[in-house]
């Protein structure tokens, strides 16, 4: 008797669950895009992807990671399109045969944010090298992504330009190995400095005491590129649909969609697909 009710209970639970297992989305035409946290967290994709899907019927599934991890996902063949922001890594990706062509899409810029009290006195500076030197000299807390992302790589390059090796400091430089948002949360919590892309900053809500202190240096330029994962390398790559997305991003329509995305009247990304060498 007891046994029967137990078995019945199990069977009922099984039937209930199996009945609920069904495809989440009706669309079976989709591509997977490995991209960065900045494009996802800033809300750009939420704004532009529906326009692409409406036009083509292709659903875009975005896996948003740091640039380093996104490239790794693409290199394993787990994405159809790679959309990231670190040109040297992207060129290497193409050189290694994982894609046949990289196309520039848009840019924004990095900024240095920090506490309003500004212990390193860098506020208003347009010279990022000098600013980083001051932060190091003041031993003011600086929170770094430390996650091999595009932003992290650019930050490391800037420290190099400034002639400072922050990792030898005595604890003021904190590499937390997390995404942009977590880095800003940490910087807000410890009233520290951090480098962030402007798009994430503009859409970030937990700013605490932080404000933009350094901006406008040409070296803070942040270029995004897109590439189709090479179907010759991975036969399952959805070449036609992936290429359609790449082409749309750099088309007049896609570029306009990017330009149209604003928060409080501020543009977050600036399309520049037609700029030679971008």
């Amino acid at each position: 008797m007891l046994r029967r009710s137990f078995v019945l209970g199990c069977a009922a639970a099984a039937a209930l669950l199996l009945g609920s297992v069904q495809p989440t989305t009706a669309a079976d035409r989709f591509i997977t895009v490995a991209s960065t946290t900045s494009t996802e967290d800033s809300g750009l994709f939420k704004s532009i992807l529906p326009k692409f899907t409406e036009k083509t019927g292709i659903e875009v599934r975005v896996v948003a990671k740091g640039t380093g991890q996104a490239i790794d996902i693409a290199k394993r063949g787990d994405a159809d399109v790679l959309f990231v922001h670190h040109k040297p890594s992207e060129d290497k990706f193409v050189a290694e045969g994982f894609s046949t062509e990289r196309k520039p899409v848009m840019y924004n810029d990095f900024v240095i944010v920090g506490p309003k009290a500004d212990p390193a006195k860098v506020g208003g500076s347009k010279d990022v090298s000098a600013a980083l030197k001051s932060i190091a000299a003041a031993k003011a807390p600086f929170v770094s992504r430390g996650d091999d992302s595009g932003t992290h790589k650019s930050e490391q390059a800037l420290w190099k330009t400034a002639g400072v090796d922050p990792t030898t400091g005595d604890g003021w430089y904190r590499a937390i190995g997390q995404g942009m948002g977590a880095t800003l949360n940490t910087a807000a919590a410890v009233s520290g400095y951090a480098m962030t892309d402007r798009a994430t900053w503009l859409s970030f809500k937990n700013r605490g005491d932080l404000d933009i202190l350094v901006e406008g240096d040409k070296r803070l330029f942040n270029q995004y590129g897109v590439m189709l994962v090479n179907p010759a390398k991975f036969s399952h790559v959805k070449a036609a649909d992936g290429q359609a997305f790449v082409d749309w991003l750099v088309s007049a329509e896609g570029q306009q969609a990017i330009a149209d995305y604003k928060i409080n009247g501020n543009s977050l990304f600036f399309p520049n697909a037609n700029e030679p060498g971008a």
């Binding site: 967290d41 948002g181 807000a188 859409s203 970030f204 809500k205 937990n206 700013r207």
Partner: peptide, 9 residues
């Protein structure tokens, strides 16, 4: 996790 990273605590 995502909303935390967006700072929307």
């Amino acid at each position: 996790a995502l909303e935390t990273s967006k700072g929307d605590l």
